[in-house]
Amino acid sequence: MDQAPLIRLEDVTKTYRMGDVEVHALRGVSLSVELGEFTAVMGASGSGKSTLMNILGCLDRPTTGRYLLDGQEVSHLGTEALAGIRNRTIGFVFQSFNLLPRTSALENVELPLLYAGAGAVDRHARAAASLAQVGLADRADHFPNQMSGGQQQRVAIARALVTRPRVILADEPTGNLDSRTSVEVMALFQELGRSGITVVLVTHEPDIAQYASRVVTMRDGRVRSDVRRAARRAEPLPPGEAAAAEEALP
């Protein structure tokens, strides 16, 4: 291995205390993810995949073990420092999109830049570029309730991309989408992988996982299997919508 992995977990455990009961959500996970890799994390509910995602996303800290993100040990960082890392290094995509209502697509995409301290001009330019990257340049001033689920998720992806992060963490990103739009979103993720962004995706749908080049399966807080294989290429774009998107572009 000539390059340090982007993500490196070393024997990470996570224990929650719920009243008197200790819940072992992770019981020793070691995992390395290379730059540009497209990884799907699968597992039943309660398998620890959500906890793993929270730790990968610096939303939570491991109880024991080490987490190196982009060469930096982050498992002991404080709340403020973690917020900074989330802002610069990580982009989140959620199942329920989590767009701010009554706020235009452009401003939703700008949100992370607000906390990065970017100036207004810079913010608008970068958010617009990010929207263009997901094919929604013409929807910048639309509100979330004026867009389809697929479009909303693409806005969310644009928001995740806008700070040019190293990692995109997607938690069931297709959970609220129909199969056609799901493929669309997966195609977008594959494209990101090709451009050097690491994507980690949590899903329970094998159909979705097949678009990833690596599938990690969790069970009872441990990695049960870790398979690298050729990913199925997502080639969806229904002709109607693709044409519409292209027409609208200047």
Partner: peptide
Amino acid sequence: TREIGLRMAVGAKPGD
């Protein structure tokens, strides 16, 4: 609450 969670996820510090 969700908006706050989202803002925190994308990098808002508690102080923000």
